[in-house]
Simulated assay, not measured.
Amino acid sequence: MEVKGVLGTIEFDGEWITITKTPVGQRIAPVRLRAADITGTRFKPGSRLTHGYVQFLLPGSLAAGEQGGLAQRGRPPYSDPHSLSIPRKSNAAAEKLVAAVEQARG
């Protein structure tokens, strides 16, 4: 299962979540999270005017909050390794992925 986000992707194989961000001019460094280690998920659907996001919460770490401003309005910062911004066209795929992760961590 895969969700194409803004400058990256989230993949879920039933056990592992892989967040791959593709920054310009840097090496790709995927982040792997085990679904059983996730304590929660946050999903905000994208709209016509703003991107949404998918964020995974882990024990012992604080969730990055939503930023203000024109470019990052209502999303965690790009530097947060446990989240990815998503466009409106990826809302359905992101919703399915979040549901699958919630069921797997169950």
Rank of each mutant, 00 (worst) to 15 (best):
A64G: 10
L84Y: 03
R48N: 09
F56W: 14
D37R: 11
T39Y: 04
F43T: 06
K89E: 06
G69T: 03
I38W: 14
A94P: 05
S90R: 07
G68V: 03
R48S: 09
I38T: 12
P59E: 13
S47H: 00
A94T: 10
T50C: 03
R75L: 01
L57C: 15
Q55K: 07
T39P: 09
D37H: 15
G74S: 02
D80P: 03
I38C: 15
N91F: 07
Y53R: 06
P45M: 11
P87E: 04
R42V: 11
I38P: 10
G74E: 00
P87M: 02
G65R: 06
R48K: 07
I86V: 11
P45Q: 12
R42Q: 14
A94C: 14
L57Y: 03
T39L: 09
H82I: 06
S90L: 08
R75N: 11
K89Y: 08
P59Y: 05
P77K: 06
S90M: 08
G68Q: 07
V54K: 01
G60W: 12
S61E: 08
Y78I: 05
Q72L: 14
A93H: 10
R88F: 00
K89D: 03
R88Y: 01
G65N: 02
I38K: 13
L62R: 13
I38E: 09
G52P: 06
G46T: 03
A94L: 06
D80Y: 13
R42L: 12
D37V: 09
G69I: 02
I86S: 01
G40E: 10
S83A: 10
T39F: 07
L49G: 07
H82S: 10
H51G: 02
A94S: 15
R75M: 07
A93T: 10
S61L: 15
Q67W: 02
P77F: 08
H82F: 11
S61A: 12
Y78E: 08
N91C: 15
G60M: 08
G68E: 13
G52Y: 01
L58V: 13
A64W: 04
P76S: 09
E66G: 00
F56C: 08
P81N: 10
K44H: 05
Q55P: 07
R75G: 02
A94V: 12
A36M: 09
H51A: 08
Y78Q: 05
R42W: 06
G40D: 09
K89F: 04
F43K: 10
S61H: 12
A93Y: 08
H82C: 12
P77T: 07
S83P: 02
L84H: 02
S90A: 15
L58P: 04
L84S: 04
G65I: 01
L70T: 05
L62H: 07
S85F: 00
G68D: 14
R48C: 03
S79A: 13
G65A: 14
S79K: 13
Q72S: 13
L57T: 14
P59F: 10
D80L: 15
N91T: 12
S83K: 08
Q67A: 04
